[in-house]
Nucleic acid binder design. Structure first.
Lengths: 221, 221
DNA sequence: GTGCTATGATACTGACCGGTAACTCTCTTG
DNA sequence: CAAGAGAGTTACCGGTCAGTATCATAGCAC
């Protein structure tokens, strides 16, 4: 115990109280209508930071601070940073397929148009100067440990995408659907990775034409 | 100073000496004929570890230990870890173009064969189960800081590669050399990145056929 | 009111990070 | 033999890492 002026101040500083001004501020912020839960804020912040700065470059402390909460709330909602990363990718997988299926259902029975729409979406994403490629592929580059919980999410996602492409190419009547699907896959992955080295004005900007030409060549055969 | 038994032992422990056995071992290893310099060992070890485990995943201490030396030797030969990373990529750039030019000079005036040979090399690399894609592209994913010394190395490398492809496609007589070059570039980058998610049996294994078909389609036009 | 749940705040652990100081040893070159 | 360069060794620095313990508080349900 330390004697300060005429008041007793407990040495354990987690017992010291914030000023009244601070208290009122926090109370106000907490009462904000529709304020997302701590879990949601942490998840959203982590998703953004992982994508923009990279997984290893972002610490849990930074995530918590940026989400306007503390590390304890992070660890109350997620078992570990690795699991938070895996969760982020799981959610990305879910929304990816949601978008994909919505797009596909707009052109039922027309795989050609579906693929065209998919590449249009990709072209749009790849033209965004803030984009930093595919979260899955980037994570695969950063995470080399075979046992990391995110790895199976990544591999499953990419395997599913490849299978979908094969399916579409088959429906389209391509003579070598496997080859065409892989070619399209390589174009997609290439576009996402090149924007990180040559930007939106690099090879990625030709992604739509590139895919069209490839499909035409296959269907001509 | 501490009195231990009847001998004076300086408290500063960096003055404590290793056992005679340790000394003899180190002396022997040091005298090994043709043992590369500390700098070389550090550089080689760092290159391998950065590539296989990732840049951020490898600490300077680990590099030094794996190179059978210490951190001090690392910092005597390289100003910082960031510069060591940049050096690694600079060397990769140099050997890349050495290989490329050697390959190109084997088929002078025949850009078609040159490209075929380039993709054959890529196919071989991509089939290696230990390969982890392109060091440049991987580094670009890991390094998000705009000021990092490695960034300009990466961007210059990829820009040069793209320019070379355009040049070759032009020589080949393609009607849209820029488009063909970008398509080939996307295939290359895609192949390197997909082996990290779907392995050598993924889409990357069709890289040679994919490029051939693309070139054929362009030349037919 | 009384709990209960979610959240907040702070301090702490042990490990590791990149980077440096200070000193010793050995080999080479003159 | 002397001088210098290259290399090795250990301890240390301040900072950050992921993860935990402990207590406080605010809102809600009953």
């Amino acid at each position: 115990m330390i004697l300060t002026g005429n008041s007793l101040v407990n040495q354990r500083s987690h017992m010291t109280k914030p000023s009244n001004g601070q208290l009122r501020l926090r109370a106000l912020r907490k009462r904000e209508a529709n304020r997302p839960s701590a879990r949601q804020r942490i998840f959203d912040t982590a998703s953004e930071l992982f994508y923009l700065k990279g997984i290893r470059a972002v610490g849990v402390e930074t995530i918590a601070a940026e989400a306007d909460t503390t590390k304890m709330s992070l660890y109350r909602n997620f078992p570990s940073k690795d699991e938070l990363v895996a969760e982020w990718l799981r959610e990305h997988d879910a929304t990816f397929w949601q978008t994909w299926d919505a797009m596909a259902s707009r052109y039922p029975e027309d795989p050609r148009r579906q693929i065209k729409a998919a590449f249009a979406l990709l072209a749009k994403h790849v033209a965004d100067p803030k984009a930093r490629g595919c979260p899955m592929a980037n994570a695969a580059v950063e995470i080399t440990e075979k046992a990391h919980p995110a790895r199976k999410v990544i591999e499953a996602h990419k395997a599913k995408l490849r299978a979908r492409l094969v399916q579409m190419c088959t429906q389209m009547g391509a003579q070598e659907p496997g080859l065409l699907a892989d070619q399209l896959f390589l174009l997609m992955e290439g576009a996402q990775v090149t924007i990180q080295t040559l930007g939106a004005r690099g090879p990625a900007r030709n992604i739509a034409r590139a895919s069209k030409m490839l499909i035409d060549a296959h269907l001509r055969a």
